[in-house]
Design a protein around this nucleic acid. Structure first.
Lengths: 146, 146
DNA sequence: CCTTCACTTCGGCAGTTGACGAAATGATAG
DNA sequence: CTATCATTTCGTCAACTGCCGAAGTGAAGG
């Protein structure tokens, strides 16, 4: 078992922080995108989520503060990836996996795969609009929200 | 396997609802108390949490809406228990377990064990104040919140 | 019936959250 | 150095949350 010595044990406050981080559709979707393993930059997630870059950045900041993602700068671009080291990492994966077959999450997965093939400059010069780089959003069916 | 055909898979909205429900100290603590298995009534949890009964009731209502607890009326008293049937039940248990060794949660466990021995009328006639039924709160050490 | 009791619902207030655009930051290219 | 670019920070606003006490609800008991 590669089980490195983890931090002691999360406090109520930390667990609450993690739960709050999960408790927003945009953040849950971002985690679901990142759960595929590959890191993603802010602009890639922004283009999929259709939110302002500043909004997405704020969400990522909260995910980072809760220890769910880590950042890695590469030039001007900042890549985020799931942080596997946290005590909560496994539990978080479980929670995220619960929504794996949600239509919205599935669509995000499809989109992000295509987005990954688009060079960053192309994506941002298109104003982060996927249609402008030839990616169509498959319409999803009513999403069956309970 | 008693595994009745549950709802297909939780939607993003449902998972977010569950995460939000976990994302509050009082609710997380209530779930931790209930995770011991035995059902608890509103007044018992109220006395431990030191909140207004209406506040606790509201929290329990939210937990119920998210499918995390179920209620069972017994006369005037309403008992709540963890709902194991939900698709998210396992993941929730995990999240709650993360905080199991938090000082606050440990104290709650100790208190609830004593509270359970006090008859409900005695508890409520004491205004839900534990000191008034001879239960002392062990002072907890700084709680080490990160 | 009328009261009591355990709980829930309602109204209102304070604090937090999430959205955006504008401006600041820091790295790279010319 | 200057310009550009990806991202972050800041200011502001509307919406939501959590708390309480007061009033309402429904079961038990006098």
């Amino acid at each position: 078992m590669a089980r490195p010595p983890r931090a002691p044990r999360p406090s109520v406050r930390q667990v609450v922080g993690v739960a709050k981080a999960l408790g927003h559709p945009a953040r849950l979707r971002m985690l679901a995108m990142l759960a595929r393993g590959a890191p993603l930059c802010v602009c890639q997630m922004t283009s999929v989520l259709e939110l302002a870059p500043s909004t997405v950045s704020g969400h990522l900041n909260e995910l980072r503060r809760s220890g769910l993602v880590s950042e890695e700068k590469a030039g001007k671009v900042v890549y985020y990836r799931l942080d596997e080291r946290g005590e909560a990492a496994d539990a978080v994966r479980r929670m995220v996996a619960l929504a794996a077959s949600d239509d919205h999450v599935r669509q995000d997965r499809i989109l992000i795969r295509q987005v990954r093939r688009v060079p960053i400059p192309t994506l941002t010069r298109a104003g982060l609009k996927l249609e402008r780089v030839g990616i169509k959003r498959p319409r999803l069916r009513a999403s069956a929200g309970a």
